[in-house]
Simulated assay, not measured.
Amino acid sequence: MFPTSGSRRLETPEDTQELAAELGAALEAGDVVILDGPVGAGKTTFTQGLARGMGVKGRVTSPTFIIAREHPSLSGGPTLIHVDAYRLLDHDASGGLDSLDLDTELDDAVVVAEWGGGLVGQLVPQYLLVTIDREAAVREDPSSQARYISWRIVETSES
């Protein structure tokens, strides 16, 4: 069971992926994870670990130019849908995720959205917000690869 809230300092990208793999193993169909952090914070690195923990197919790369990538399960679990919601923020939220023309029903998948708080928060009653802060560690030590990662459940007023 993955804790519903917490924070950790992780020293390497591999440590980040290991934490994410723990979370990925606990996720179920219908779960939504929002990744928040500046460019280069490690959102795709985190998603790579999450995908490993979920046991899904395919190489996880940034979905920036295609908006969403689907990664089907290798073992009958939920599909991972990795979304770059930044480009969807200019659209009407009610049509945002539904208009992606995905082969998978969102209720049968785990959705991981980079930059998605403003969009997804209008579509689901709750999501897991994961905040990745690399800047604080770099201020402490400019050669550091560390990240501060915190997570918590956010309740929304579903539309």
Rank of each mutant, 00 (worst) to 15 (best):
I67R: 05
V60F: 03
L89E: 12
P72D: 12
S75Y: 14
L100E: 05
W115S: 01
R87A: 06
L100R: 02
D84L: 01
V112T: 03
D92K: 09
Q122I: 00
P78H: 13
V60L: 09
L128C: 14
G95F: 06
S99Y: 04
A113N: 11
W115G: 04
V130P: 09
S94I: 01
H82Y: 07
S99Q: 14
I67P: 03
R69D: 07
S75K: 13
G117I: 00
L123N: 09
P63K: 05
D92H: 08
I66T: 15
I66Y: 03
L80W: 05
S73P: 13
G95L: 09
P125R: 07
L102D: 10
A85P: 03
A93L: 00
G95C: 02
P63F: 09
L129D: 12
D108Y: 03
L106R: 15
D108V: 02
T64I: 01
G96W: 05
W115E: 08
E114Q: 10
D92M: 00
S75L: 12
L97A: 02
T104P: 08
S73E: 12
D103K: 13
A109T: 05
Y127I: 04
L106S: 06
V111C: 05
Y86A: 00
H82N: 08
G77M: 13
V112G: 01
A85I: 05
W115C: 03
R87K: 04
A109C: 08
V110F: 09
P125I: 05
T131L: 12
G76V: 07
G116W: 02
E70Q: 14
L128Y: 11
S94F: 12
A113M: 05
L97N: 01
G77I: 12
D98H: 08
L74F: 14
S75H: 15
T104L: 07
H91S: 10
H91D: 00
G117Q: 15
R69C: 11
V112R: 03
I67Q: 06
V83H: 01
L80S: 02
Q122F: 02
L88D: 02
T131K: 15
G117C: 10
